[in-house]
Amino acid sequence: MTTASPELVLEGLARRYGNTTAVERMDLAVKPGELVALLGPSGCGKTTTLRMVAGFVEPSEGRILLRGRDITTMPPHRRDTGMVFQSYALFPHLTVAENIAFGLQRRGVPKPEAAERVARMVALLQLQGLEKRLPKQLSGGQQQRVAVGRALVINPAVVLLDEPFSNLDALLREGTRIELRRLQTELGLTTLFVTHDQAEAMAISDRIAVMNKGRLEQLGTPREVYDRPATRFVASFIGRANLFVSADGRTSEDGIALDIPTPGTWLLRPEKVTLDQAPATGPNSVAGTVEVVSFLGTGAQAVLRLPGGRALLIEGPASLADLRPGASATARWTPQDLTLIPGEH
């Protein structure tokens, strides 16, 4: 699969509105059957990128190729994309079955075949018995499944998901995203998925495209963007981060003793730090005052206030929660736990 030619290619894709840039020259190649997340804070250009692929927003620059065809200026209805909208955008005047059948009818699929494909999709998404209902008569989770079914039943070349889980409550969200990932893998659907939720992106993506202010900051597997973030933004947006800026490799800007091979910005993930009551022992350990502890069930989190004023975030076993706020403690880590962020100087 890794050697297959990409299904969807964005080449130098850009969108400007007057003087503001929504998306800045973006390159991305999605392989067949791959799920790529466009991840970033609101206003980072991820939805604009998705809408350019769908054909609702015209690119100011660049090209979009789908299965080798240039679709940059093609109207949406000829593109062969299946989109799931954040609001689901179910047709309120059509039943569940009619909603799912809409795309098949537009493609002139014969009635018996269309009915069979709708029935199969209804079964696949566990919507049996709801075929004759109108969208307003469904729960949020059911509406979401109809929206997914309507987009998948036409076998699109690429599935576009715009924050498909954001209108579900937390409990339903996790189950639904696992279900969707299972479906996507089973059917081998090439998928572009917009989200602002990094945990969601990590959980179900093959690769994540982290975007910020219209730029693609990093493209990589969830492990790569977590373990080796390319920029400071990626480091703090994906997971939690303690960052040290050091000009000489010996101490950080705020006076913490480090022992690192090169100057630069270094990342220390909270789960790499341990906390104990013994005094600090030179580089890669620092004493401070416990400020906040929170018990998280599977573990615990602590904030250690350092003399220089910085707050160091630590994640560890549940026993961390036994620490009393106000107590003195020492944070320790090994030099291997520090990762250099290459994009910063």
């Binding site: 769908a54 054909g55 609702f56 109207p75 949406p76 209805h77 593109r79 994309t81 299946g82 989109m83 909208f85 955008a89 179910l90 047709f91 809409f102 795309g103 537009r106 493609r107 309507r150 987009a151 036409i154 576009l160």
Partner: peptide, 10 residues
């Protein structure tokens, strides 16, 4: 938009 992405002309 949904109708168009499903294959309906404008």
């Amino acid at each position: 938009h949904a109708a168009m992405s499903l294959g309906a002309s404008p």
